[in-house]
Design a protein around this nucleic acid. Structure first.
Lengths: 104, 104
DNA sequence: GCCTGTTTTCGATATGTATCGAATAGTCCG
DNA sequence: CGGACTATTCGATACATATCGAAAACAGGC
């Protein structure tokens, strides 16, 4: 029944991403930290962020970021990698993510 | 004891407005509708927005918008007027509000 | 096939907030 | 002052979410 926990995660099409989804994704400090790390140092596995939250909590944050069209995930061996989707998002919400990240 | 309910409302200094406050304020459709109306038609009294929510609910939204540094309120007779504070906010978070409003 | 490492799901808790109706309080006018 | 108008606060409800630890699922190596 619990069909594939790891079953390649679903990512929304840009059309399906609402401004509420994006704002919600950006409105959390932990999630912004994730974005900043990805931006500064490139793709990273979920377990390598060194943030002060439990792994299960991080997983929820990744879900929110996926829903907001901000990250995309792909599997590599037993690790799940995260990559930014901002360039793509920017065609729909120009400057939004940049404006938020600029606000240290 | 309940010292002045109407006692001129408090507005945060720009220094005290966090990016979380701003994003939170922007992350609600009703609040964005308020902002758009103010932007399109200028200052307005609280009771003149014609939005489908109770007056008490609107009051909470105004509080969130004040906290996010997005509006300022001033009293005129028995009405409380709302005015945008975006130009000011923009010096601290350049382009943020504009980017959100551009996302219809 | 079994163990190890990685991530997600589940169950539970605590907190935040959007919403309403009713009550309260300020302002103006007669 | 009393009444009408305007807006906020209070109390209650419903729902969302951030958080954790434990359990479950997948990939790789022995």
């Amino acid at each position: 029944m619990p069909l594939g926990r790891w079953a390649s995660v679903s990512h929304p099409e840009l059309d399906e991403v609402t401004v509420d989804d994006v704002l919600h994704a950006l409105a959390d400090p932990t999630r912004r930290a994730i974005i900043r790390l990805l931006e500064a140092e490139g793709d990273r596995a979920c377990g390598t962020f060194g943030l002060p939250v439990a792994a299960s909590t991080l997983s929820h944050h990744f879900r929110a970021l996926r829903k907001g069209g901000i990250i995309r995930q792909y599997d590599e061996g037993r690790k799940r990698m995260n990559t930014l989707r901002i360039a793509e998002l920017d065609t729909k919400f120009p400057g939004l993510v940049a404006a938020v990240l600029a606000s240290a």
